[in-house]
Amino acid sequence: MSGFELLPQQASTQAPQTDLLYLFLVFVSAAIVILIVLLMLVFSIRYRRGSAAPRPELRMLTTREFEIGWTAGALFLALFIFGWTGSVRLSMLAAPENAIEIHVQGKQWMWKIQHPNGIREINALHVPVNEPVRLIMTSEDVIHSFFVPAFRIKEDVVPGLYTQTWFKATETGSQHLFCTQFCGTQHSRMIGEIVVMNHDDYARWLREQPQPGDLAAEGASLFKALGCSGCHIGNSAIRAPSLAGIYGRLVHLSDGRTVTMDDAFIRDCILEPRKNVPAGYDPKMPSFKGEVSDGEILRLTAYIRSLKSTGPSG
């Protein structure tokens, strides 16, 4: 079964594109290497010292023409390859609209995965085949990197930041997940698997998982338990912005910036409220640094996203 392979399995929509670029580059490189090596060999033999080959002087014009010619040729080739690969990159940047959102937290030395309905996995991610999956990732400690060779995707997982990547698996089966940014002692043991299943199997798997309640509902109880509702809902002594339907909207801040209210913004508000004070409000929100974990921030974010314009029901 495991013969001598040169390419890993192509198991995502990205894989054939990456492999095509790779093989093109292999072909071009091989051609250039063979050309140079052949020329060196031919010249070495023909013009070895004492050989009878004629050696008239090279005219300056010929020299100049060749120089300019191959410089221009090399530059053109370089720019052509850039143009092709750059456009492939830009076209594959954004995940499709309907992608399943999976949250990934790397930590020394394991992967913690959260599905949108609250299902959690450790060192494994089950996904349905032929469905786009968007990964929103962060780290709890040092920088790790989420690498699935069969999908040809990789993105670092950084503490203090959310990074993203996406894939659409095209083959069922189990694929290696490697950590590929050196992260300490057990870096080489931080291995997981991506299990791609057909729809029926995936649906069955989902049903079989323990259901802890969805993220947004857990976020709602956290919102109350942590006291957020005290200021952000209804009439309170402290004037705090309403959170109804604001996810994704533009927010004007008191220092003049205008930013989008997204996951990173919400995280900053919870941990560093003084960084993003909305225009017209006082910087009175306390910081919850040290009081909420990354997982709880996830749930609060999910809850806030779920709030419609009519406002939370308390």
Binding site: S254, D255, E272, R274, K275, V277, P283
Partner: peptide
Amino acid sequence: IARFLYPQD
């Protein structure tokens, strides 16, 4: 960079 990230504080 630090000043850009957290101007007010």
